[in-house]
Amino acid sequence: MMRFPLRAGIALACALGLSACGGGDGDVYISGTVSGNTKAGLVLTNNDGPRLEIAANQSSFTFPQLVETDASYNVKVVAAPDNTQPSNPADPSTGCKVVEGTGSGKAVFNVTSVRVVCTLKTYRLTARIIGSHGAGLELVNGSDRKVVDPAATSVEMAPIPEGAVYGLAVLSSPAGQTCTAANASGTMTADGKTVDVTCTTP
């Protein structure tokens, strides 16, 4: 049987170090990362508490309300950017989802593993080719690279999420020609974007 002085000592230790005994005020932060969100309107909650607004292109978040070491956490998306709802409600690929958003806060360390992954609707980025051109015309937008067929009058680049920036450029021109892109950068809208690429022969 535990002696009274020993029990009193344990109680005192708990009083001085509440986190070690699973009690006391909150002392664990709940935080994580955000990816794929290019629009305002994303709002998160933890345990159905105060709303945390996430700005467009914000890559991380931390709830200001701490969680007790003996409590659970449950991060949810309660509002999403207005373009995350798919035109086909059965399509599960579009929206903002929480990954690893629930668990116990019993660990001594802060929780940093929550991920909010957004897949927004995308729209067409078209390069319209003006003037005849030979082989060797290549266009790029970020990591997207397209080789243009000499007979092509337009090229579809990879779709761009609404609110994301784009910057189409001519990587190489056909031999003996100069090709330039006009008004080639901006922010994607629901109308899509068309960039004129003009090729000339000196």
Rank of each mutant, 00 (worst) to 15 (best):
T126N: 09
N110H: 14
A127S: 08
A107E: 14
L18D: 11
S72P: 00
V116W: 02
V98R: 10
T198S: 14
C21A: 15
S87Q: 06
T69W: 01
N110F: 08
A107T: 10
T119G: 10
G192C: 07
G103K: 09
T187F: 10
N83S: 07
N74A: 11
G131D: 07
T69D: 08
V111M: 07
P64F: 05
A181T: 06
T187Q: 15
C199T: 04
S93R: 13
T45W: 03
V67M: 10
N183G: 15
L42V: 02
G142F: 01
S154Q: 14
S104E: 12
F109Q: 11
Q85P: 00
F109R: 08
R115Y: 00
D70I: 00
Y123D: 05
F109W: 02
G32Q: 08
G9E: 14
D48Y: 05
D91L: 03
S132V: 00
R51V: 05
V99R: 13
L44Y: 04
G167P: 03
Q177R: 06
V195S: 12
A55V: 07
V75N: 05
L6W: 07
E156K: 14
L52D: 13
A90P: 00
E68M: 07
K39Q: 14
A152I: 00
I130Q: 07
D91M: 03
V197R: 09
V170K: 12
G49W: 11
T45S: 11
G24V: 04
S173P: 11
N57M: 13
H133C: 08
P50H: 09
L171S: 15
V34I: 15
L171H: 13
G95T: 03
F63W: 11
S185L: 02
T45K: 09
T62C: 08
P159F: 03
E162M: 10
